[in-house]
Amino acid sequence: MLVTEVSNALPGGSSLLRNEPVQARSSARLAGLLDAAAAVIDDIGFERLTTAMVAERAGASIGTVYRYFPDRIAVVEALAIRCTQRLGARFVEALDASGADTWQSGCDALIDLTAEMYRTEPGFRAIRFGDAGDTGSGDGEDRMAALGGAVGQVMRERFGLPDTEAISRAWTVLAESGHAVLARALADREHPDLDLVEAFRAMSHSYMGSVLAAA
């Protein structure tokens, strides 16, 4: 994933960035700042993240951070977008690898992938940050709706599901609820709550099945 994709995907174009990375070195610097933010979030959580911590972890000056980001919220939102992009890119790969041939097995592949990324992807918990209650912006809500729409499109193309407003809404519901449940289930990466993961899997099958039956 190119770091410039992050700036292109930011709400309102690249308004969260003070300067877009137009050269390879600038892109690498921005990637390093996001990697540093991810590491700090994994260590202490996003609530305590500061731009000074990002600079220190990245081995950069605070001026370098402010060259790209106006505040800590913009750092977190950019990291969340990067995580969302990586999840979307790996979803199709996960479907191919799993040999999924039904929408239920497609759901399972997405759940397993998301759980694995919560366990292994630095800063992946940032994917849920940016909700209105977390940062004061509505960008997180738009991001989850976009993620649900992307998943719905893949599922329609793969498994021939109908294209209805109710089904599209259902994918958004599952994206929102899934990240809330899986973040809790994987809060302890070394000892994940697998029963909670399986409960969400069963709920997903039942809920989507009922929506499809009514379509």
Rank of each mutant, 00 (worst) to 15 (best):
M1D: 13
E5H: 13
L10V: 03
L10F: 02
P21L: 11
P21W: 02
R25P: 10
L30W: 00
A31I: 06
G32S: 04
L33D: 03
V40F: 03
V40I: 08
I41F: 00
D43S: 09
D43I: 02
E47K: 10
R48P: 10
T50Q: 06
M53Y: 10
A55C: 10
A58E: 02
G59T: 05
S61R: 08
G63L: 10
T64K: 01
T64S: 01
Y66C: 03
Y68W: 07
F69G: 04
F69Q: 06
R72D: 05
I73G: 03
A74P: 06
I81R: 03
L87R: 08
A94G: 08
D96A: 10
D96T: 07
D96K: 09
Q104F: 00
Q104P: 08
C107R: 02
L110S: 04
I111T: 03
G123Q: 01
D139H: 09
G140A: 09
M144H: 08
G148C: 07
Q153D: 15
M155E: 10
M155F: 14
F159G: 04
P162R: 05
D163H: 12
E165V: 11
A166L: 14
A175L: 14
A175I: 11
E176D: 15
G178H: 03
A180V: 14
A187L: 14
H191K: 13
D193E: 09
D195W: 05
L196P: 03
L196D: 05
F200E: 00
F200Y: 06
S206V: 12
V211Q: 09
L212T: 02
L212C: 03
